[in-house]
């Protein structure tokens, strides 16, 4: 037995509150990040990922207070992303209690921010998030930024290789074709990254059932699998996800 494949629930937060479909039985306040995080922790989540979707910069600092509270109660790794533009942003989140910070659009616009941040705070804290969309009819993918709205012309795998060279410690790889579809991960995309890069790959986008999580590891070769809706709507618990993965022969922490 060795390193376990990780299961990571992802939470959208805005203004320091959890938004979008948290539907646990008995949860007093579905928007309370501490309560939600604690619930996932009890279920055996290996990490938590918070995506800040706050639209206005006025409310951005609220996530710092939120991370501070979660990190005082839940003792598993916390990744925070969304709107991270500079090394100063990275530091603020780490000081609040985040363990890793994910950088997406800003990394594409200014790759030096990845190099700079990983040099200052260590690669282990820097996750580069890549939103990729398949080029029609071809076995390659293009990087999109700004929540999938803006095409960049960059080849996703080439960008991943570059991000690794710049000092990323991990890649959070989301298929824009699959995100929200519940049709499962883009396994070819995931496998292309996992088999090419030396750093760990978190597969994201498209999970609609537990079988998809196992496929992400077995066929996509992902090191970790991230999902939102199947956990939020209490269709499945993280524990059920791990039981399922274990039956498929995947090593998980239980």
């Amino acid at each position: 037995m060795g390193l376990a494949k990780r299961v990571i629930p992802c939470l959208d937060v805005s203004g320091g509150r959890v938004v979008k479909g948290i539907n646990f039985v008995g949860l007093r306040d579905a928007g309370d990040p501490v309560e939600v995080a604690r619930r996932y922790d009890e279920q055996g989540a290996d990490e938590l990922c918070f995506l800040d979707i706050t639209a206005t910069s006025d409310n951005r600092d609220l996530i710092l207070t939120m991370i501070e509270s979660v990190a005082s109660q839940v003792f598993i790794p916390l990744t925070v992303g969304g709107g991270v533009r500079s090394v100063a942003d990275v530091r603020r989140l780490l000081n609040a209690g985040a363990d890793k910070v994910s950088i997406n659009s800003a990394a594409v616009q200014n790759p030096e921010v990845v190099a700079d941040a990983s040099e200052k705070v260590g690669s282990q804290c820097i996750v580069v998030a890549i939103d990729a969309k398949q080029v029609a009819g071809e076995a390659r993918w293009e990087v999109y930024t700004h929540g999938g709205r803006r095409a960049t012309g960059l080849d996703a795998l080439e960008w991943g290789v570059r991000a690794q060279a710049l000092g990323a410690g991990e890649i959070l790889l989301t298929s824009m074709d699959r995100d929200g579809t519940r049709n499962g991960f883009d396994l070819a995309l995931t496998r292309a990254f996992a088999d090419t890069l030396e750093i760990p790959i978190i597969a994201s986008g498209g999970v609609g059932c537990l079988e998809h999580l196992s496929a992400g590891v077995l066929e996509g070769h992902a090191d970790a699998v991230l999902a939102a809706s199947i956990f939020h709507y209490a269709e499945s618990t993280v524990r059920e996800a791990k039981d399922h993965m274990a039956i498929r022969g995947i090593e998980v922490r239980r």
Binding site: M1, G2, L3, A4, K5, R6, D46, S123, Q124, G169, E170, D195, E198, I199, P200, D223, A224, R253
Partner: peptide, 19 residues
């Protein structure tokens, strides 16, 4: 160790929960 050809790729950093 860096990955060796014809062996399963070893991810570095070693990241996650281990025994």
């Amino acid at each position: 160790p860096h990955p060796v050809a014809d062996q399963e790729r070893l991810k570095v950093p070693h990241m996650g929960w281990n025994e």
